[in-house]
């Protein structure tokens, strides 16, 4: 227990992202731009977990993830859990689920797609495979695999 405390000190207010797919923590920090937010961030890599063999974990102090950030997170690590912490207690558990439509989060890889060539148009994807998390551009129809996502 004391060892755990050393690893994950409780935070007063903020967000704990748990059960991140091992190795994805770093990428999540980058893509959500958390390091730039000016608050204290802790990243734990390859933590032993009961559920998965290894997992990553992120603690963000004084900042609660918004819905858009949680959707991005869902694409990067679909089984992650988001706990919103207020006054040292879990105030809210947010469901991390890939939405059936994903808007303004990912670039369409097709350079000739209208979504990449028109002012004011946001990208829009449809989740077409719940298991592989393959998504499809609603404009040009291009399908992208989860590991090839290019975030906005």
């Amino acid at each position: 227990m004391s060892e755990n405390l050393l690893k994950v000190q409780p935070i007063r207010n903020g967000t704990v992202i748990d059960h991140i797919r091992a190795g994805r923590g770093r990428k999540i920090l980058d893509i959500l731009g958390l390091s730039k937010s000016g608050t204290t961030i802790s990243l734990l890599v390859n933590v032993q977990s009961k559920k998965q063999k290894r997992k990553d974990m992120i603690k963000v102090e004084d900042r609660e993830l918004d819905e858009n950030e949680i959707e991005k997170l869902a694409l990067l690590s679909p089984n992650a859990r988001v706990n919103i912490i207020r006054n040292y207690a879990v105030a809210e558990k947010k469901e991390v689920k890939i939405p059936s439509f994903i808007s303004s989060i990912v670039h369409c890889p097709n350079e000739n797609c209208i979504s990449n060539n028109e002012r004011g148009v946001s990208s829009n994807f449809k989740l077409i495979d719940e298991e592989t998390h393959q998504i499809q551009c609603t404009y040009c129809g291009r399908k992208i695999e989860e590991d090839k996502l290019n975030f906005l």
Binding site: N112, I114, S115, N117, E118, V121, C137, Y139
Partner: peptide, 10 residues
């Protein structure tokens, strides 16, 4: 008729 894919959908 448009040179970009997805123009009609938009």
């Amino acid at each position: 008729r448009h040179p970009r894919e997805g123009a009609a959908k938009l």
